[in-house]
Write a protein that binds this DNA or RNA. Structure first.
Length: 468
DNA sequence: AGCACA
């Protein structure tokens, strides 16, 4: 009772993920701190140079047990914890997390996120980046990409020490002029740490390199280097066509899941991969088809249309710079439908066999399909309490399966006869009061009866036909 | 040598 207030210090401290370190050398660096602590676990945050003498610090481990292991180790060790030869005293902090203004990018790791300001992607080659950063140690991998922030590169070093030496030396500096094209004014490097530890490089290309794996295949389309954007008849830049579409979803009042995207875009051909992400607060999706023709048809048909009735989830489509997406095979934000599967390979990956003839070969099916897509997209299992209200067969939250693939207009061009394309539809919240099946929605065509019984719920989290 | 920052 008497000591239950805020004791100056405690003899028995409750363990915490956060450790308090004192008697550190003056202005001990974060790297030294991490060096000392990382044998015991993953460090998620630090705060150093604390106190009037700037000789205290906090270290937060990912897991409580890691902090406990460090405290226990030094409690019974004959060798005290030391930094630069000074004994460091370690105890549990009386707080349970470090709160500071440090962004994740300040937490050291072996991968740097480099933003090259004031340049376009074509101005700085990956070889120049490699040259500049190799000065600090072996560069394992590089991946470059363009983001809103500008041209960026992820650079993977062996360890955080090498990475931080590069960061300390280069952050805010500029790439030497002689390595740059003449027209580039300044190009300052902004360097932070990435949360990545191992980059997943699929190809050697002008965008990415894996210097640890010389046998990695070269991406034939990507290695050609920087293609100048084609110029259309109006003199405006015309984006190069691609088999990958970038869909921006406007007015996204309702959930747009991978399955929704899959259903909508499957209307025009085999969808190979999907990735959904947020950019500048807007939801976007990358949709990969096997070929440009299919993508072009889908783009033409879907541009400006809405997934749901009422102007919800309006699609804007452009061609992506990607040609082959690198996505998790199955997650809530991505899907890779091309992963080896005996059944699927026959349908989707048989060389020379177009998996899906372009929709324009079937003038009737093309307009029909989007309507179905929209309908199917808003159907499916929903969290309990959010049972869609529009489908009488859905009462009680139960759903029905499509009676037969043959009843499905256009199924012949989207799938093999044995695989209903729309079977992938699983979890989507239905906008209340919106009934795509019974309305002429933006994706609907007049005079088309809603003759398709929407697909039933898939097993939780699994489309029925793709296994893992 | 004994608990910070916004």
């Amino acid at each position: 009772m008497s000591t239950s207030g805020t004791p100056q210090f405690r003899y028995t401290q409750t363990p915490s993920k956060v450790l308090h370190l004192r008697n550190l050398p003056w202005e001990c660096t974060e790297e030294e701190l991490i060096e000392l602590c990382k044998p015991f676990g993953r460090i998620v945050n630090t705060k150093c140079n604390v106190g009037a003498n700037r000789n205290q610090a906090f270290v937060e481990f990912a897991d409580l047990n890691q902090a406990i292991s460090m405290v226990s180790y030094y409690a019974s060790s004959s060798e005290p914890a030391q930094v630069r030869g000074k004994t460091v005293y370690i105890q549990y902090s009386n707080r349970h997390e470090i709160v500071n203004n440090k962004s994740p990018g300040d937490v050291p790791g072996n991968v740097l996120l480099v933003t090259i300001e004031g340049v376009e992607a074509g101005d700085v080659s990956i070889d120049v980046i490699h040259l500049v950063f190799s000065a600090f140690g072996f560069v394992h991998k590089i991946a470059t990409f363009e983001k809103a922030a500008g041209f960026q590169a992820l650079i993977q070093f062996t360890d955080a020490e090498t990475a931080s030496s590069a960061r300390n030396a280069l952050d805010g500096r500029s790439i030497p002029r002689y390595l740059l094209p003449e027209h580039v004014g300044s190009c300052h490097l902004r360097i932070s740490y990435s949360a990545h530890t191992d980059l997943n490089i699929k190809f050697q290309s002008h965008r990415s390199r894996d210097y640890t794996n010389p046998y990695l295949p070269v991406n034939p389309t990507a290695i050609e280097g920087i293609t100048q954007p084609a110029v259309g008849p109006d003199g405006k830049k015309k984006e190069p066509e691609s088999n990958v579409l970038l869909a921006s979803i406007e007015n996204m009042q309702y959930a747009v899941t991978v399955d929704v995207i899959h259903t909508v875009f499957s209307a025009f051909g085999t969808v190979q991969k999907i990735a959904i992400f947020e950019k500048n607060g807007q939801t976007q999706a990358l949709v990969q088809y096997p070929d440009i023709t299919t993508a072009a048809v889908a783009r033409e048909a879907l541009e400006g249309h809405c997934i749901y009735d009422g102007g919800y989830c309006k699609l804007h489509l452009s061609y992506s710079r990607h040609t082959d997406l690198n996505v998790k095979a199955y997650s809530d934000k991505s899907r890779d439908y091309t992963i080896p599967d005996a059944n699927l390979l026959a349908v989707q990956a048989a060389p020379g066999v177009p998996a899906a003839p372009p929709a324009w070969q079937n003038p009737q099916a093309a307009p029909l399909y989007p309507e179905y897509s929209a309908a199917a997209a808003v159907h499916g299992q929903v969290p309990s309490g959010q049972v869609p209200s529009w489908d009488p067969t859905m009462q009680g939250g139960r759903s029905t399966y499509v009676s037969a693939p043959g009843t499905y207009p256009g199924q012949n061009f989207a799938t093999s006869s044995s695989i209903p394309a729309y079977a992938a539809v699983s979890a989507v919240a239905m906008p209340a009061g919106s009934s795509p099946l019974s309305h002429t929605g933006p994706l609907s065509q007049p005079g088309v009866p809603p003759n398709v019984r929407p697909v039933g719920a898939s097993p939780p989290g699994q489309p029925p036909y793709y296994g893992q």
